[in-house]
Design a protein around this nucleic acid. Structure first.
Lengths: 116, 116
DNA sequence: TCAGGTACTTACCAGAATGTCAGTGAGGAG
DNA sequence: CTCCTCACTGACATTCTGGTAAGTACCTGA
């Protein structure tokens, strides 16, 4: 995300700026059942690379959406969890998620008309 | 947007695929008060170029989010409006918009720390 | 005949976003 | 002493998004 100064036309605009990109909402989604380790997240978000996962986690962390907790152990263990702020974001994302869920078929059909 | 086949991990994923990008939600927002002509939209969505506006409108149209109505007149007149589907999307976007609205200050503060 | 308004269309390009891949450090197992 | 796991990091390549600037077609009014 670009992080350029934007006065934001409306609230959605601001929210999209926080959760924009290909992976953020998926990470949020993976986190909504509870804290997860780095490696677990990698498994929970299919297709993401380590670089992207860390990068997005760092951004979410600096936006105070996720919390990062390091356990100083020998194979390192780091747990990521939603902050209260992140939880509130996730909650307000729910209706959109339900909309997507309900209309998934239609979305898939119009956006990816079977061509093979 | 990439339009590649994606099984979609969750509903939000699908929804984001439909409204993703820099302009879609702003167009939706501009449309939520009623139908608008092309030129009006251009004014309502500050900063958008004609190319982007048309491109995004076309995509929204093909996703059946907006309806395009041509009035065959001499200075051409084309009106864009939300379909029922688009209205339902807009509705489910509302909580996110409210979240953004509520936390706008915080978002701006964390994402754009004053550096001049 | 010629500029003007409206809704586009097209070619080209910069820069942002994402991906690939190889490497790091610390301690435990063998 | 070497390899293994885990959580990263960095250089580089590619792909995608959005931006600029110009042009089109149509009819109208001067």
């Amino acid at each position: 995300m670009q992080r350029q100064p934007r006065p934001y036309t409306c609230g959605i605009d601001a929210a999209i700026d926080v959760i924009g990109g290909k992976w953020k909402v998926l990470i949020l989604w993976a986190l909504h059942t509870g804290p997860q380790r780095f490696g677990e997240l990698k498994r929970l978000v299919p297709g993401i690379t380590e670089k992207m996962l860390i990068q997005q986690l760092r951004e979410l962390e600096s936006d105070d959406i996720v919390h990062r907790e390091v356990h100083h152990q020998v194979p390192p263990k780091v747990e990521y969890s939603l902050t209260d702020f992140g939880t509130s974001l996730n909650d307000s994302l729910k209706p959109l998620g339900e909309w997507g869920e309900q209309h998934m078929d239609r979305i898939v059909a119009t956006r990816h008309p079977q061509h093979d």
